[in-house]
Design a binder for these strands. Structure first.
Length: 868
RNA sequence: GGUCGUGUAGCUCAGUUGGUUAGAGCGCAUGCUUCACACGCAUGAGGCCCCUGGUUCGAAUCCAGGCACGACCACCA
């Protein structure tokens, strides 16, 4: 079949092809590993390779972080597919409890409504509507990026089967005594009206007032005076001389309109330098105070409720909002002469990571997961198991060990895991998995926990929902039909979890905890953590800064391939990535370059044809390109196997542009008969580039090697190439390149017009036969004509390394030679110094010494020639 | 306070177990409608590899300390 040039326009316009190509892939069904086996492109006995897509939140749209995640994961999965594995990449979305509820609440607010106006069911209906729209947007965007996801296995955290798994796991943990309900201190967000996990709390620096209050016999300092109404303890440092006689006593203290009773105790955590060295302890409204209360047996008195108002315990202040109470309380203290002084200080305030509202720590009856309790089945706690799996593998089994890339995150992981406290999993919001616990009417005493609602009358389900990370934590197996599903048996544990390091704790760690507990298996063998996307100045991308880049806009402008490449090249795992439009444009240029390389090959070569084994090299250039290509195959394969994506892409880029296009194609225009070699290389280069730039490679492939568009002949399911024959450097072709570049440089610096063919004579004792045999290439690539005789005195003489070039033009070469001479002299001096160092001669390996001697010899020869 | 990361050309970054005359892309300069590509081709300029010590025959690379920037964890009552 002859390729019509009209099929291949001069510039590659990604937008014309990408959607069609995705459609072509998807309708082939070959994203699905079962279909691959059915079609005979994958052997059913090969190993499986599974990745679950970190499910995007059903709020809003794709951002660059998603784009980078997709670029990596699709690269990994396509590479594995080309290597012949049964590959499965599971798509899905996350209901994102608080985030989604907040978005819909904001929508409602625009209509002047609150969720309570609708009621629970109507509100949830409204959220579902929003979600279904949002899900479709996300699906479209994932396709835009070229993600080879198996859509037939798509999941959603609120799907019925996934939800059943959630309830199942909850029930089992309850039965194992790992889930308990307790009146404990939690992080309360008054705006979200819900609890937050410890790692959902962020800290912000702010200016605050530090109040010094007369507090019975002592003075204490506090930034939250109103909480002192709930004090039940007074803490001092054990060695603090000022308070020795108070330790162990119970004090009655008047604070204006209220009286409180506190127990004095000593604890080393008290900083005697700060404030007055004495702390009023408020167990119900401070994490550390709560811990002290447990340790020293203090009463827990809750004075602030879930609405941010003072409780009945606050006596005369009951019912007041916290802020108002503070003003009143301060005024009352002042009247009573109890306010000593006020200082301005900087302190950290805890805020909700979703909405930025100040957190109100308070005690509340909530559901928790006990991370320290031994599980009968394992004889170990969740914490211990999760550490073990990453340290040495579950029960010491190396197959049950989780690797983390990059390695430095091991330390971060262990540190977090070792300090992990019980995980509060109940949330006071409506959107999410409702806690599968029922209480018998009339109290909380009688409890039923189960996957199905209890039989009989008079049961009332817990109003709360589960932390969104509870269901995400089950994602590797809840998506695969645990416990009895074929997919679960076949594809779990998964091979890689690829995600940003910012959710190492939120998600990765929790998956490890929950998966080991439930399945006894690790969730994944490897964690690959990519960096976060920043702008060119290194700032986070955000709406308020207006520095965000919309991936869809970039795809429209430059193509998905270009965007993908720009997220891979120049990045290292765990390191943040600076993204800017020029970079994407740069890789668009590469895509276009490759397009034109293919275009040239396919228009020049009459018959695109697949070549099974490496053709015999006929010329020096052939030998050079094939040896380099073999080396490329080996290097790229090795790098991808060890997850070194950026270096692999750079190698491909460099070979494609600087070797194949800049040199070999130019040679091919001169030497004829390159059909086989060009076909051989293009075919395999397409395969190797495919995981990085899937669209353009599939377009080229389908117009050349698969013109009938047979699914099983798609590029996506080809076999990864292997080196056939000698791999390595250039040998004599390097010398040829050097001679040509030298001539071009002489021409350029002497302003010889490019069209002018210049007489040349090259003399060499060492390389005469080589130069003789490659005259044609030199002549055409450097625009020179070889002559037998030439007036050396009037010619430009360039003394090369082992050869002499005489160019029949007038010009000046002195400046250049002078510069070369200076550099050489410096170089020689450093080599001489090294080689005259006896220690070096005695201790360095002989190969290194010989190499240095050889360098020196050559440098000296060159210098001599330049001087003459 | 603790832990970690980063510092290489104007910009964004490579630099794989210590041995290169330190690289790439963009940008810049000069020239080119060379029949695949101006999203291109050719040639070129541009670097105390943050600082100070140390280890070593030899350090951009390893170690210690410092400076600058960044992230995370803990958290100030």
């Amino acid at each position: 079949m002859k390729i019509e040039s009209s099929n291949l326009p001069k510039a590659y316009e990604a937008g014309k092809y990408e959607d069609d190509i995705y459609q072509y892939w998807e309708s082939s069904g070959l994203f699905n590993p079962d279909e691959c086996i059915k079609r005979g492109v994958t052997d059913k006995d090969t190993p499986t390779f599974t990745i679950v897509l970190p499910p995007p939140n059903v709020t809003g749209k794709l951002h660059l972080g998603h784009a980078s995640m997709l670029a990596y994961e699709d690269l990994i999965i396509r590479f594995q597919r080309l290597q012949g594995k049964q590959t499965l990449w599971v798509p899905g979305t996350d209901h994102a409890a608080i985030a989604t509820q907040t978005v819909v609440e904001k929508e409602l607010a625009k209509e002047g409504l609150k969720k309570e106006d609708l009621g629970r069911e109507k509100f949830l209906e409204r959220v579902r509507e929003y979600v279904s729209k949002s899900k479709n947007t996300i699906r479209k965007q994932l396709r835009k990026m070229g993600a080879s996801l198996d859509w037939s296995r798509e999941k959603y955290t609120l799907d019925e089967d996934v939800s059943r798994t959630v309830y199942h796991v909850f029930t089992r943990m309850y039965e194992d005594g790992l889930i308990y309900r307790g009146d404990r201190i939690v992080n309360w967000c008054p705006r979200c009206h819900s609890t937050l996990a410890d790692d959902e709390v962020e800290y912000k620096e702010q200016k605050a007032k530090l109040y010094y209050i007369k507090y019975g016999p002592v003075v204490i300092a506090t930034t939250r005076p109103e909480t002192k109404i709930g004090d039940t303890g007074l803490a001092v440092h054990p060695d603090d001389q000022r308070y020795q006689d108070l330790i162990g006593k119970e004090l009655e203290i008047n604070l204006g309109k209220v009286d409180i009773k506190v127990k004095v105790f000593a604890d080393k955590e008290v900083d005697p330098e700060f404030g007055s060295g004495a702390i009023g302890v408020t167990p119900a409204h401070s994490q550390i105070d709560f811990a002290w209360a447990e340790k020293y047996g203090l009463e827990v008195k809750k004075i602030i409720d879930e609405d941010g108002k003072m409780t009945a315990e606050a006596g005369p202040y009951a019912g007041l909002p916290v802020e108002e109470c503070r003003q009143k309380f301060i005024a009352d203290l002042e009247k009573a002469g109890l306010l000593v002084k006020v200082e301005e200080i900087e302190n950290n305030i805890s805020v909700c990571y979703r909405c930025g509202t100040t957190i109100e720590p308070l005690t509340s009856k909530q559901w928790f997961i006990d991370v320290n309790k031994k599980i009968p089945r394992f004889g170990k706690s969740l914490k211990e198991l999760s550490i073990e799996a990453v340290r040495q593998g579950l029960s010491g089994d190396p197959k049950q060990k989780i690797d983390i890339i990059p390695e430095r995150f091991y330390k971060t992981y262990f540190q977090w895991m070792e300090n992990l406290r019980d995980w509060c999993i109940s949330r006071q919001i409506w959107w999410g998995h409702r806690i599968p616990v029922w209480y018998k009417e009339g109290g909380d005493e009688e409890v039923y926990v189960g996957v199905e609602p209890p039989k009989g009358e008079g049961w009332r389900q817990d109003e709360d929902t589960l932390d969104t990370w509870f269901s995400s934590a089950l994602w590797t197996f809840s998506t695969l039909g645990w416990p009895e599903g074929e997919d679960f048996k076949r594809f779990h544990p998964t091979q890689v979890l690829e995600t940003g390091y910012d959710i190492l704790f939120f998600w990765v760690a929790r998956m490890i905890i929950m998966t080991i507990y439930t399945t006894g298996q690790i969730p994944f063998e490897k964690v690959y953590l990519h960096g976060l996307i920043r702008d060119k100045q290194g700032r986070k991308m955000s709406k308020s800064l207006g520095n965000g880049i919309d991936p869809l806009e970039m795809i429209a402008k430059y193509g998905a391939d270009a965007l993908r490449l720009s997220m891979i090249i120049g990045t290292a795992p765990g390191n943040d990535i600076r993204m800017y439009e020029e970079k994407i444009a740069g890789y668009r240029n590469f895509v276009n370059k490759f397009w034109n390389i293919a275009r040239f090959i396919l228009l020049t070569v009459n018959k695109p044809e697949r070549i099974a084994s490496q053709p015999l090299p006929k010329t020096l250039a052939d030998q050079w390109i094939l040896a380099n290509f073999n080396q490329l195959i080996q290097e790229v394969t090795g790098l991808l196997e060890q997850f070194s994506f950026s270096p692999a892409a750079e190698k491909l880029y460099e070979f494609t542009w600087s070797k194949l296009a800049d040199w070999y194609l130019e040679v091919a225009k001169i030497e004829q008969g390159k059909d086989e070699i060009l076909n051989y290389i293009l075919e395999r280069l397409l395969i190797m580039l495919h995981p990085f730039v899937p669209f353009v490679t599939e377009v080229i492939w389908s117009t050349s090697y698969n013109p009938e568009k047979k699914p099983e002949l798609m590029l996506m399911v080809q076999k990864w190439p292997q080196a056939q024959g000698e791999a390595g450097g250039g040998g004599q072709f390097d010398l040829l390149q050097e001679i040509i570049v030298n001539i071009r440089s002489l021409r350029s610096t002497n302003k010889i017009p490019p069209v002018e063919v210049v007489d040349v004579k090259i003399e060499s004792e060492k390389y005469q036969p080589l130069i003789e045999s490659q005259k044609e290439l030199i002549a055409k690539l450097a625009r020179v004509g070889f002559v037998e005789e030439l007036d050396k005195d009037s010619a430009l003489h360039y003394p090369g390394d082992g050869y002499d070039i005489y160019l029949a033009v007038s010009g000046d070469i002195k400046a250049r030679l002078e510069k070369e001479r200076r550099e050489l002299e410096k170089y020689i001096a450093s080599l001489e110094k090294k080689l005259s160092n006896e220690e070096f001669l005695r201790k360095a390996p002989s190969e290194v010494i010989n190499k240095e001697r050889e360098k020196l010899k050559q440098a000296r020869e060159k210098l001599n020639k330049i001087k003459n």
